[in-house]
C-alpha cells in the first residue's frame, strides 16, 4: 500500500453536504472494472452533463482544480453504502487526502485501507480551509501526517493506529494474520462458552 507522509498538492473546495457514495461512484461501475480505471467515473453524475460533455461548473473540471489531490469537503462526506469502490475511485482520480467536519463511517474506515487520509476537523476550521482553497491566489496545501498539521498551522487529530498504517503503508490483513495464535486461543475458549456458534 502507498505510504502517506507529507503531501503538498492543490486543494479543491467541495463544500456540498452529505456527499454519498452513490454520488461518488454509480453502482453500475462497481461490477468488476479494474481499480485504476475508476477515476474516470468518480462523481460521474455531477462531473458530466447529460450528453457526456464535462460540466464546467463542477469544481474538479475547473482548470485550477484539475488534478487536485486534497478535497476540502462538507459535512458527512462518504455517507451511504459500504462500497469501497468509492474510495478506489477517488484514489484513481489522484485524491490522497479528504478534509471534512464528519464522514460516513464505513467510508472513513475504507480510506485507511487504501492509503487515503481522512481528516476530521470542526466545521468552522473546515470552512476557513475551504475559503483558503477558493481564494484566487490560493497556493497548494501541505499536509504533514507525522506532525498532524495542515499548512504548518492547523492541527488535526488522528487515531494512532490509522496514522501508523498510513505512515508505514501497513497492511491490516498481514498484521492480523500474525496474531493467529490469539485467534485460535479465542475460538478454543469460545467453543466451550458458546458451542452453538460453531456448527
Amino acid at each position: 500500500m502507498n505510504k502517506f507522509q507529507t503531501l503538498t498538492a492543490v486543494a479543491a473546495p467541495f463544500p456540498k453536504k452529505n456527499v454519498d457514495t452513490d454520488l461518488i461512484i454509480r453502482i453500475e461501475r462497481c461490477t468488476g472494472m479494474p481499480r485504476e480505471e475508476l477515476g474516470r467515473y468518480a462523481f460521474e453524475m455531477a462531473r458530466y452533463l447529460p450528453g457526456g460533455a464535462e460540466n464546467p461548473e463542477f469544481v474538479l473540471n475547473q482548470p485550477r482544480y484539475r488534478g487536485a489531490q486534497i478535497l476540502v469537503c462538507g459535512e458527512f462526506f462518504g455517507t451511504g453504502s459500504s462500497r469501497e469502490v468509492a474510495v478506489w475511485a477517488l484514489a484513481s482520480l489522484g485524491v490522497r487526502c479528504l478534509i471534512a467536519p464528519s464522514f460516513g463511517q464505513i467510508f472513513f474506515n475504507n480510506c485507511f485501507q487504501n492509503g487515503l487520509l481522512p481528516i476530521t476537523l470542526p466545521a468552522p476550521t473546515v470552512a476557513s480551509l475551504a475559503q483558503r482553497a477558493a481564494a484566487p491566489d490560493a497556493g497548494p496545501f501541505t499536509v504533514d501526517l507525522a506532525a498532524q498539521t495542515i499548512n504548518g498551522s492547523v492541527h488535526f487529530e488522528i487515531a494512532p493506529r490509522g496514522k501508523k498504517m498510513l505512515l508505514e503503508g501497513l497492511d491490516e490483513i498481514a498484521l492480523t494474520l500474525a496474531m493467529e495464535p490469539k485467534i485460535a486461543a479465542f475460538q478454543a475458549a469460545d467453543r466451550q462458552r458458546r458451542p452453538w456458534i460453531y456448527p
Binding site: 453504502s81 464505513i106 496474531m179
Partner: peptide, 29 residues
C-alpha cells in the same frame, strides 16, 4: 451497509468494505 438490520435480533452487526471483507475471510476477525 445495511448489515445494521440484523441488530433487530440482538446481534452486533455492521457493514464492511472490501478490504475488511477480505480481512474477515482470512482471519475471522
Amino acid at each position: 451497509s445495511h448489515t445494521c438490520t440484523h441488530g433487530a435480533l440482538g446481534a452486533l452487526a455492521w457493514g464492511i468494505g472490501t478490504s475488511e471483507l477480505t480481512h474477515v475471510l482470512a482471519t475471522q476477525t
